[in-house]
């Protein structure tokens, strides 16, 4: 590139580009608006508008003969969400699994995260961090099918449990919950680990100097400090389970979750309006959940 000779000279040519740049220099607000226009447009058009377009079909219906979605405003789909026992039982089952998976993941993540941040040396900590992240490198489907083989009647789990007089849970809701718990564990460990990192070690020492036993320290010092991180982790495990429909298909036996109902309504039933109505359920649950945890500051720990 050669240098522009006019820059050095006293007379600066007034090009349109220069005019624009001097205008922007003098108008800070316009500058900001222009800067934000592209991402906001993206968010509004591509993300929110597309989502709303999809959800608004919940109030439409399907033409029985041609199978096309037609605009005929009605509340039938929403009403059937509340009146049809199928939808309420599947919703309750889905929430149950999501809660179970979340609680188990938190119970597993707490000691692992604590060990990583407070006990392990820097070298071991790195190894642990890598091994927590390692499963994320493998595809979701590969992991689900791996569990399909682990849980099978001739699988590793059966081989381990048989001497104890126990049996593998097989392809069932338990199988699905175990697999989902495995899938989302890293997403729970990482925020809790991050939260524990922020707890200064000398606070734990101070607590014990003042006579607090281990359990009291955990309950009165650590727990209040990392609660937002725990909730942040729970949001991941809970919301990811709420929307899952693949794992339950692979290891869940004959059971179905909300995602399966949505999937069959889009695919098999060709009933996009009903699928959109069903999609409102997890959205409503997540809104309620996020709303209730907003005050804890968990959303700053995501």
């Amino acid at each position: 590139m050669t240098k522009n000779p006019s820059v050095a000279g006293a007379a600066i040519a007034v090009t349109p580009a220069r005019r624009v740049s001097s205008y922007l220099y003098n108008h800070a607000k316009a500058r900001l608006q222009l800067l934000l226009a592209a991402p906001v447009l993206w968010l509004a058009l591509v993300y929110i508008a597309a989502l709303l377009m999809l959800l608004v079909t919940a109030f439409w219906t399907v033409d029985e003969f041609t199978g096309n979605t037609k605009v005929a405003w009605n509340l039938d789909n929403i009403v059937s969400l509340f009146t049809d026992s199928l939808y309420s039982s599947v919703t309750l089952r889905t929430i149950g699994i999501a809660l179970g998976v979340t609680l188990v993941d938190i119970a597993l993540a707490l000691p692992i995260a604590f060990f990583m941040s407070k006990v392990a040396g820097p070298k071991l900590r790195n190894i642990l961090a890598i091994s927590v992240l390692l499963p994320l490198w493998a595809s979701y489907l590969v992991k689900a099918y791996a569990w399909r083989s682990v849980l099978s009647n001739k699988g590793v789990l059966q081989w381990l449990l048989e001497p104890l007089g126990l049996n593998t849970p097989g392809y069932s809701l338990w199988g699905a919950a175990i697999t989902l718990g495995y899938m989302w564990l890293p997403y729970v460990i990482l925020p809790i680990y991050g939260g524990l990192e922020k707890v200064p070690g000398n606070m734990l020492e101070a607590s014990s100097d003042l006579g607090a036993k281990t359990f009291t320290t955990v309950r009165r010092v650590i727990f209040p400090m990392i609660l937002p991180s725990i909730i942040a982790g729970s949001i991941f495990a809970f919301s990811l389970t709420l929307g899952d429909y693949i794992t339950i298909n692979i290891v869940g036996g004959p059971n179905q979750m909300l995602g399966n109902l949505i999937y069959t309504n889009v695919g098999t039933a060709n009933n996009l309006p009903m699928a959109a109505a069903l999609a409102l359920i997890p959205i409503a649950i997540m809104f309620a959940y996020l709303g209730s945890v907003r005050r804890t500051g968990a959303l700053n720990n995501l």
Partner: peptide
């Protein structure tokens, strides 16, 4: 019709 069958199938799986 098939739409009724699809709904019935969801009910069967529960």
């Amino acid at each position: 019709d098939y739409a009724a069958w699809t709904k019935a199938w969801q009910d069967i799986k529960g």
